[in-house]
């Protein structure tokens, strides 16, 4: 494996991009599945339980069992549902989640060894598509993901679904504002929308990390990220105690599984963005650069689980109050202060 500096990048062929895309799809969906396993385990430990133990060593193959189960379950579509939309909605969630990952550097770039037939010497880049508006694209795609739950909830002819859909619209739209505003300050500092530029900006070591320059933006982004990915304490869309399963009430089998994969893919995306934007990203020069970014992503992922184990839900009205009366003003203030500092 060889890591190259941006300047020395060989030409990215369409074959390389395709391979990368397939890799992201395969590995992230596997990771999403693995994420469920990790989540169950971590929550279990925090509750002094063992979690899944019996399928495979230490329950490692539980994900395989769950996958088989989800795949083989009967595909039920409610009688009064809008069938087409009902069937498409989960795909939207999963698709937007993976599309967002297209602009995120996920794994190191590498060249396929020349002795492999057909694909030999193909360069596989770290980013499937290094857009110059990377962050904007990712945020945009994640925002588009709101159509998944929204359409799902509205198409299924179920009152819990409708409520879930309404909450989706309210929550995702509101927090989109916070996400955008919070990340605007770092973008102003870096002056680029490319993740590579963010990485480069912070390449100087821990001291250069944006989290020190933009602590408020970091906290705001994190909170908004929780809301965007529908995680506790903001998982109002499918809050069991209130709306049964919200937008996913009527879903089962693989369709429901796609929501799940989308959610976990989003979690990974948010973790990756947070790592790159605020925690210095990957160290291109170091052999362990990729290891470190993995550790950072894992840290954020773990944080999400940890929070779920520790904190209670908020009420929808508290959620709105928090968004519009606290977070959004704070973000605006943060941008103003950043701008002022930059001007001065």
């Amino acid at each position: 494996m060889e890591t190259t500096l941006i300047e020395k990048l060989p030409e990215v062929t369409w074959v390389g991009s395709l391979i990368k895309a397939v890799l992201i799809l395969a590995i992230i969906s596997a990771l999403a599945g693995f994420g469920t396993f990790i989540e169950r385990k971590v929550l279990a430990f925090m509750q002094r339980r063992l979690g899944p133990m019996h399928v495979g060593y230490y329950g490692l193959l539980q994900i395989a069992a769950d996958g088989i189960k989800l795949f083989t379950k009967e595909d039920i579509i409610p009688q009064n549902a809008n069938k087409l939309i009902f069937m498409i909605a989960p795909v939207i969630t999963a698709a937007t989640a993976f599309i967002a990952l297209a602009a995120v550097p996920v794994f190191p770039d590498f060249t396929i060894p020349s002795w492999i037939p057909l694909l030999g010497d193909t360069f596989v880049p770290s980013i499937a598509s290094d857009l110059n508006i990377g962050i904007l694209f990712v945020l945009g795609m994640m925002a588009a993901g709101l159509y998944g739950p929204l359409l799902a909830g509205m198409s299924q002819a179920n009152k819990w679904g409708i409520i879930g859909a309404a909450r989706t619209a309210v929550q995702f739209l509101s927090y989109e504002v916070v996400t955008g505003l919070s990340i605007l300050a770092p973008i102003m500092l870096v002056g680029s929308l490319s993740f590579i530029d963010f990485n480069t900006y912070q390449a100087g070591g821990i001291g250069d990390w944006l989290i020190w320059k933009q602590p408020v933006a970091f906290v705001l982004f994190l909170i908004a990220g929780f809301a965007e990915t529908n995680r506790t304490p903001f998982d109002l869309l499918e809050h069991e105690a209130e709306v049964v399963s919200g937008y996913a009430t009527e879903y089962s089998g693989m369709r429901w599984g796609m929501f799940f994969i989308g959610e976990y893919a989003n979690m990974i995306t948010v973790s990756v963005i947070a790592s790159i934007v605020f925690l210095g990203g990957y160290d291109v020069a170091s052999m362990f650069g990729w290891f470190f970014i993995m550790a950072k992503i894992a840290l954020f992922f773990f944080l999400m689980l940890w929070v779920r184990a520790a904190w209670p839900h908020v009420r929808p009205d508290q959620l709105m109050w928090l968004c519009w009366k606290v977070l959004m003003p704070l973000a605006v203030v943060n941008i103003l202060i950043t701008a002022l500092v930059m001007m001065v």
């Binding site: 971590v42 279990a44 430990f45 925090m46 509750q47 002094r48 339980r49 063992l50 133990m53 940890w306 929070v307 184990a309 520790a310 904190w311």
Partner: peptide, 26 residues
């Protein structure tokens, strides 16, 4: 206060994993 909660769960996990305080009976 929120961090107290985080600490409590973390402590429970650490005790469960390393201090043999797991309550599950297989």
């Amino acid at each position: 206060e929120l961090f107290v909660g985080l600490w409590v769960t973390m402590k429970a996990m650490l005790k469960a994993l390393f201090a043999n305080d797991m309550h599950t009976v297989k």
